[in-house]
Amino acid sequence: MTMSQQPLKIATRKHLSLNFFTNTKYEFLLAGITGGVASTMTVHPLDLIKIRFAVNDNQLDSRPKYQGVMHAVRSIVRADGFLGLYQGVTPNLIGNGAAWGFYFLFYNAIKSSMNQGDTSRPLHASQHMLAACESGVLTLVLTNPIWVTKTRLCLQYESVKLDNTKRYKGMTDCLLKVYKYEGIRGLYKGFLPGLIGVSHGALQFVIYEDMKIVYNKYRERAHNAKLSVIEYLACGASSKMIATSITYPYQVVRARLQDQHATHNGAIDIIRKTWSFEGYRGFYKGLFPSLLRVSPATAITFLVYEEIISLLGAKT
């Protein structure tokens, strides 16, 4: 190797190491945050009900019992008023806004690195899967403490008396108390099943991206051509419903790990107890309200995201 060739190789290495950052476009962060916040405000009550169904293992007699979604809505409103349906909405807004924002930011930066900034070149399904998995892990590291506070605020029942260490006045109070009494490990409860759940987001994005490509191919258009509102809604909702149906059990395990009313010895302990006392049905508690929630939520998120990206002139 000549002296003239060596600097070129070093420069190339530097270029590759900075490739991720040069392909990071903050329009994706803004679009993701806006989409996440818009969808959360719309469907939070269903998220609340899903969590309450998911953690109900019939081991705590004082925990409210619901006979269905509508019965849950009536019971919550009767006990806590209409605002009771929005318990835990603050961390949910912040969590979903941050999660979708970071997810889209990382996802598109990684995709852009893969195709070297050429958005006209389609990626393979395996590349979409890899980008989605990497984005999911990075996002989970940043947002897991928020999901712990959301779950615990959603599970504050007036009928269940807890000591002051597990009774929370709001998101900040919850974060501080969890850290004070349970440490960093408390803030990252449910992290392991959350990592497993990264496959959920990865699967959803692969399905979503492939749906758009296949549909545009069917319409004889460019693979990244802009779709109509209805088409984005259909692709977003369909991809989320399929991914949720396949991967839902991890959400039950994560919610039970984060539940302040019960003590478990880890995810394996929860899986064993759930199978022993509830059978396979236990892993799908809350699936129906979850499906009711994810369809409009994801459709709204993806629609708002795509429209803002188009407005800002960024290319996906």
Rank of each mutant, 00 (worst) to 15 (best):
A109T: 00
A98C: 10
G170T: 01
G97I: 03
N164P: 04
I51N: 09
G194Q: 00
A234T: 10
E278G: 14
G32V: 02
V206T: 06
L291W: 07
G313I: 04
Q260L: 06
L203S: 05
T172A: 12
L105A: 05
V43M: 12
S295T: 15
Q156S: 10
Y157V: 08
V148Y: 06
Y107N: 03
M3K: 06
I51G: 01
G282V: 02
L175C: 11
I76Q: 03
A299M: 04
M1R: 05
G32T: 01
F28E: 02
A225M: 07
S39L: 07
L85T: 10
S62C: 08
A131W: 00
D118W: 13
Y103N: 08
K240W: 06
C133T: 09
Y66I: 14
L83G: 09
G190A: 00
Q59T: 15
A99I: 06
F53W: 08
H261M: 12
T301R: 07
L18A: 14
P91T: 01
A299N: 00
T42C: 11
F288W: 12
N96R: 09
G279F: 02
I146A: 04
V229A: 11
I184K: 07
A225S: 13
N115G: 11
H264T: 09
D61I: 13
K315D: 02
A131N: 09
Y248S: 00
Y284V: 04
G186W: 05
T298Y: 13
A299E: 02
W100Y: 15
S62K: 10
V214C: 10
I309M: 14
F191M: 02
K273D: 10
H128Y: 15
R293Q: 14
P289R: 01
E27C: 14
A234I: 13
Q251M: 12
R221M: 11
S290W: 11
L192P: 01
